[in-house]
Design a binder for these strands. Structure first.
Length: 473
RNA sequence: GCUCCCUUCGUCUAGAGGCCCAGGACAUAGCCCUCUCAAGGCUGUAACACCGGUUCGAAUCCGGUAGGGAGCGCCA
């Protein structure tokens, strides 16, 4: 393939989570950016499940991961549930490929068996730290000869396979987010590519898979930046093509510290359960660590068109729930009546019919961020006569009995029609504007602030308005 | 400890030596509109972490300091 052909080939990106827990906000953003990267140029976006660690990988987590990604609207072109010829897309099913490539490394002498036990390694690391040195593999098994290896193997000691990192070499690559990077190979210890149980280690499986799946761009978290030279070493020994690597800074909490449980929700699931809309979450994540000229709510297609890897940020971005709430309100206000009804469903009184639910949603939506915010209003709409705040009570007293006599009579005659009630009160009292409406609001809701009165009245069960107005007549 | 990464308004960011006494969006404040809140319209407040150097000129280049983060795992 010529250089020009490579340059114009559509990109292939991927998201490669390991099913050891829930989909984290940071990973969700990584998935989003990779999807956008591919879609921007008509490329392909792959989903690969990295379940090489059987002890920590759970099928339920894998399923939840797919469900969360789908909920966000992030669809993949190939993955564990839609295989193609580059698959399978679960690392646990790619053992043969790893074994083949591992064998090639063994033939070249690029790797060597290591008989050190985890305990020995831990001890060595501790000693190095104590001596003020970087904790790296000390090379115990690096120079073992065939006889010695055979003896240890015969003694039943399981062996892992380590990559023989060249000494005195400078490892360079260009990160498409951070620019030129340079590492000294001497700062990298010989690392494990195959565990003693025969399974492939992350560094190895991940790199080999990217190459064999034709991934052209690897956009991942900055925690992998220093892994990159290792993976380049592996790929180089195997003669496999290396993708372009780009690393985005991790997302941090509102206080600038790494996102953790103490920041509250950190998983996509938690936001979904609290009633956040996927479009709100995606819009917020899109602006974190990425700049575009896009303003206002955008669709994934619009984001893809606007996405530009050159505008990926290098500094950690704060996940600020206040900003998320802005997007959320924007999305909520645009919900269709049917969508609004199901969004609100978790807090709706049981047995409420569809029409009543839609009327309620229509009244409340402009004032809500999350379904839970509707609770006090639902109590006001469906519960008993609400207690008045002090200032609401003052408003009611100021209006007087004649005012409410007129209002109650109109409510009895016209039900939930605010215009009719207001007209009657105006005729009886000559009041207009706030003077006219505020006592009605106070008597009906007990408060001075809230959603528009007219739709609120329409959401109330018949007779409620009259009952509440009549108590002051 | 060693290596690497990062640092522009409250937040997300634009900015690749003069176009920047730093632009946009969101948030926020005031005004208008309005039955309140929200929405909408208008106006405003608000930042180059710090110290040196290079240069006629630095947010932009170089060095250092401080602060934050990551990696150094038979985790990924």
């Amino acid at each position: 393939m010529s250089a020009a052909a490579i340059a114009t080939a559509p990109p292939v990106s991927r998201f490669a989570p390991s099913p050891t827990g829930e989909l984290h906000l940071g990973n969700a953003r990584t998935a989003l950016f990779n999807l956008l990267l591919a879609r921007h140029s008509g490329g392909r976006f792959l989903l690969r499940i990295e379940d090489t660690d059987p002890g920590r990988s759970l099928e339920t987590h894998a399923q939840a991961l797919l469900a969360d990604l789908r909920w966000l609207g992030l669809d993949w072109d190939a993955g564990p549930d839609c295989e193609d010829e580059r698959g399978p897309y679960r690392q646990s099913q790619r053992g043969a490929l790893y074994a083949r490539n591992l064998a090639r490394l063994e033939q070249q002498g690029a790797v060597y068996p290591c008989f050190c036990t985890p305990e020995e390694l831990e001890l060595s690391r501790r000693a190095q730290r104590a001596a003020g040195r970087p904790p790296r593999y000390d090379g115990t098994c690096r120079g073992l000869d065939a006889v010695e290896r055979a003896r240890r193997a015969a003694a039943g000691r399981g062996a892992s396979l380590r990559f023989r990192v060249p000494q005195g070499a400078r490892l360079e690559f260009t990160d498409f987010v951070h620019g030129p990077q340079s590492f000294l190979s001497d700062d990298i210890g010989d690392f494990i590519v195959r565990r003693a149980d025969g399974s492939a280690a992350f560094l190895f499986a991940n790199a080999v898979d990217d190459a064999s799946m034709g991934v052209s761009q690897v956009l991942r978290g900055e925690d992998h930046l220093t892994n990159t030279p290792r993976q380049l070493l592996i790929l180089g020994s195997l003669g496999l093509p290396a993708p372009a690597y780009g690393h985005v800074a991790l997302i941090v909490g509102a206080d600038g510290a790494p996102l953790s449980k103490r920041h509250g929700a950190v998983s996509v699931r938690e936001y979904r359960e609290r009633g956040y809309e996927p479009q709100a979450l995606v819009n917020h994540l899109f602006r974190l660590g990425h700049a575009s000229a896009l303003h206002g709510l955008a669709t994934l297609a619009e984001m893809a068109a606007a996405f530009d890897a050159a505008h990926l940020g290098r500094a950690p971005a704060r996940f600020d729930e206040q900003q998320l709430a802005v997007w959320q309100r924007d999305v909520v206000r645009r919900l269709s009546p049917a969508a609004a009804r199901s969004w609100l469903a978790p807090v709706l009184p049981p047995g409420l019919d569809a029409d009543a639910a839609e009327a309620l949603a229509a009244a409340l939506l402009p004032n809500l961020t999350l379904p839970a915010d509707a609770r006090p209003w639902i109590e006001i709409v469906f519960g008993g006569p609400p207690p008045l705040t002090e200032s609401a009570a003052a408003l009611v007293r100021g209006a007087g009995a004649a005012y409410f006599a007129a209002a109650a009579a109109a409510a009895a005659a016209h039900g939930d029609d605010l215009a009719a009630i207001a007209a009657a009160v105006r005729a009886a009292t000559g009041r207009r504007g706030a003077e006219l409406y505020m006592p009605l609001r106070a008597a009906l809701t007990g408060l001075e602030h809230g959603p528009e009165l007219a739709p609120l009245l329409r959401a109330m069960p018949p007779g409620k308005a009259h009952e509440r107005l009549a108590r002051f007549a």
